[in-house]
Design a binder for these strands. Structure first.
Lengths: 116, 116
DNA sequence: CAACTTGTTCTAGTTGAACTAGAACTATAG
DNA sequence: CTATAGTTCTAGTTCAACTAGAACAAGTTG
């Protein structure tokens, strides 16, 4: 599992981390039942704060992608498997956005508007 | 044209405003050639700062949706007309997201990840 | 032309979310 | 029991977003 964190980006670190793990779960590079690194360990290896990692884990828990339990850590659920159709739909949007040469911000804003 | 601004939201006001106008342009409720309200006027009627409105206008200019000229104001271009296929693709994503009961934040994050 | 409109640029101050930091606590695994 | 690892709490820092006001420049209008 590749976790990319960009300290210079303006998007919150916990968001970046959650997005990275989420993508890995959907792509299947982390499978259901697998355990994510302990928050303290991951925080150290990424050189960010423990709270930031835990917040990312909590985001994923709210989405139902991981179970979070004391003593055991963060375990990936099987929920990610159900995201395949969504991924396909998103790919279609990405393709359209590229032909129009729209920025990620613009496309994201359009999506958010459509979701309201 | 309906412009919705939520002061209590954490998403930047200029983003909200830009999104609102963008949606109107794509929906066709403001057409190419039409002039948007002068920044000072809009700022007053929405009870926000002029700079915030101008920033929203600049976002739309960067996307090519409006022309911005001194003395004349912000005029809508015909670019929005080319967004129809993108809108359809976005609608498909929205439909999938709703069946999975995902939050807007989650879907937006997935999209951003796919756009990288 | 002159007057007016409207976006542009500059400086400066305020606010709040995000992040950091550290400690104490608690449920679970082994 | 002991170690692990998430939970909760308090507190301080930083930076983008927003506000505010003024001076300016390039158009439009009469």
């Amino acid at each position: 599992m590749l976790l990319r964190i960009d300290q210079s980006s303006t998007t919150p670190l916990f968001d970046q981390l959650a997005a990275s793990i989420r993508a890995a779960a959907i792509a299947g590079s982390v499978k259901a039942g697998e355990r994510l690194p302990a928050a303290r360990d991951l925080a150290e290896s990424l050189d960010i704060n423990v709270h930031t990692v835990l917040r990312a884990y909590q985001v994923l828990r709210d989405e139902g992608l991981v179970d979070l339990r004391r003593g055991r850590g963060a375990v990936v659920t099987d929920r990610a498997a159900r995201y395949s159709q969504l991924s396909a739909a998103i790919d279609a949007v990405v393709a359209e956005a590229r032909t129009l040469e729209l920025s990620p911000d613009t496309v994201a804003a359009l999506l958010r508007e459509a979701l309201r």
